[in-house]
Design a protein around this nucleic acid. Sequence first.
DNA 1: TCGAAAGATAGAACAGCGTTCGATAGAGTG
DNA 2: CACTCTATCGAACGCTGTTCTATCTTTCGA
Lengths: 228, 228
Amino acid sequence: MTGRRRVTHSLEAVLEEAIALLDEAGEPALTFRALAGRLGGGVASIYWYVASRDELLDRATDEVMGRLLEGTADLGEGPDPVADLRAMLLALFEEMRRRPWFGTYMLRNTGLQPNSMLMFDRLGQQTMRLDLTPKQRFHAVSSLVSYVVGVAADMAQPPPQEFLDSGLEPARFLELYADRWRALDPERYPFAHHVADEFAVHDDEDVFRSGLDLLLAGIRAQAGGHGS
Amino acid sequence: MTGRRRVTHSLEAVLEEAIALLDEAGEPALTFRALAGRLGGGVASIYWYVASRDELLDRATDEVMGRLLEGTADLGEGPDPVADLRAMLLALFEEMRRRPWFGTYMLRNTGLQPNSMLMFDRLGQQTMRLDLTPKQRFHAVSSLVSYVVGVAADMAQPPPQEFLDSGLEPARFLELYADRWRALDPERYPFAHHVADEFAVHDDEDVFRSGLDLLLAGIRAQAGGHGS
DNA sequence: TCGAAAGATAGAACAGCGTTCGATAGAGTG
DNA sequence: CACTCTATCGAACGCTGTTCTATCTTTCGA
């Protein structure tokens, strides 16, 4: 009848709380002490389930990737493999937007991430429905993944401190950033001036989709342009 | 005539030594204490030149980017803007291969990196020679940069510990990695099996070039396919 | 030539981090 | 009851970025 002096954990609970921590305050916020505090236990207990912080991050990202795979399990049976590829990668983008920390650690193929490997494979399976050589397929998927990761890294950048301080809404802050481009020397930075207006109103998803469609168009052309 | 009790530094010397440290042992090796040791002085002295570790990394990357810009200053005047774009991005890739730490911190547009902005602009200037809308140009450059960054993030991954321990040469280790793909369940990972042979002999630069050419082909098509 | 101010260096300490060690509580089993 | 195995946790270690404060060195005007 004496109240529990000790807390009991589980790998699931640890990952759950780790993901929550990452979602709330980003990757640097995931510390063993913060996590232990949330779990109501001691720091060293976490090491029973996980060998290091790196492994914790690996397992957390793979957990998220697993959920994403479940949520998009229906994709991959459409008539147009390129359209399926597009849908999968857009889902990946959406998740990265929801969880900026996810993108950065996604590609760490440490062997401890079976679900990341599975996502890679599912993308590849779509290219197997296209008239390409194995080499072309490998290059295509690698390029798509690299592109996604690059966008992810971009979006994972925390907003600068001045933004957090200003309390401005994102759109307004973007405008302010564009002004900074317009203030640059036009001789040295002609392109910055040329696209400042565009930059001021751009939408991340638009930009992502446009690059993605460039890649997919190239892949489709390689495959002989079958399909729409 | 009394020997100097104090060491004198300079921002140049600090960055020089920081870059050397990064080159030799990667990003985690850049600590204030290691840097101070190399400079033969105290830790706190570095803070006279740099406000934080982040700023140090920013300045180091920007320094490298500056040298890269100098080294490729001749690019941008060729007859084919797409070919110039390609050459610039290949130079960027080469630098990332030489300095894995460079890629990861390249895109941090913190405002403290004028040379990164200049590189961005020089890429954009090439698109201004193409028949595109400003929006298309902005998207094109953004996509290209994202792609480069994604590849960079991939290559910045340190080789796993087992590789360092094994003492195997890279090619042999790649083969060993491919074997691991081949050991996966063929039902679940058909693509991994399909491209395992390709993966075993792949060259990073090949893969990079192939994705890059997909993007550039798409951009050229948007511009109406002028040029070769 | 002096002295004050400015520029630059550095020792020591602080808080926080990942990680390890050793002790120990609790559950299951004979 | 005692023994064993799993799981938990307090305390410490070494490392990190960062700050505080003292002090040396140079500059420059009076």
